[in-house]
Simulated assay, not measured.
Amino acid sequence: MDAPKMEVKCGVDCCHYWKNDCCNAKSLEVNPMQGKDPDTSDDTCCTTFKPSK
Rank of each mutant, 00 (worst) to 15 (best):
D13E: 15
P38G: 04
M6P: 05
T47Y: 11
C46M: 10
K36D: 02
V8D: 14
T47L: 11
C10H: 03
K50C: 06
T44N: 00
N24Q: 12
V30K: 00
D42Q: 11
M1H: 00
K36S: 05
G35Q: 03
K26T: 12
A3Q: 06
P32V: 09
D21Y: 08
E7Y: 04
D43Q: 04
D37I: 14
C22F: 01
K36N: 11
C22T: 15
P4T: 05
N31Y: 07
A25S: 13
S41Y: 14
P51T: 05
C23N: 08
K19A: 14
D37N: 10
K9T: 13
A3V: 07
E29Y: 05
G35T: 03
C15Q: 10
D21L: 00
C23P: 07
G11T: 09
K5F: 11
K26A: 13
P51Q: 15
T40D: 10
T47K: 12
K9G: 12
K5G: 14
Y17R: 03
E7S: 10
K53F: 07
T48Q: 01
S52W: 01
K19I: 06
E29S: 13
D37V: 15
K26N: 12
C22Q: 10
C14N: 15
P32G: 07
H16P: 04
Q34R: 08
C22G: 00
S52D: 10
G35F: 03
D37C: 01
D42E: 07
T48V: 08
V30I: 15
P32W: 01
S41G: 08
V12C: 08
S41K: 05
K5R: 11
A3L: 14
S27C: 04
T47S: 12
W18G: 04
K19E: 12
W18I: 06
V30E: 09
K53Y: 07
G35Y: 02
M6R: 04
V30Y: 01
S52C: 03
F49E: 07
Y17T: 04
C23Q: 04
C14Y: 09
K5Y: 07
Y17W: 15
M1A: 09
V30M: 13
D21W: 02
K9H: 13
D39Q: 07
K26P: 14
C46F: 07
Q34L: 13
Q34W: 05
C15Y: 01
K9W: 11
N31P: 00
M33S: 11
C46L: 07
K19S: 15
D2K: 03
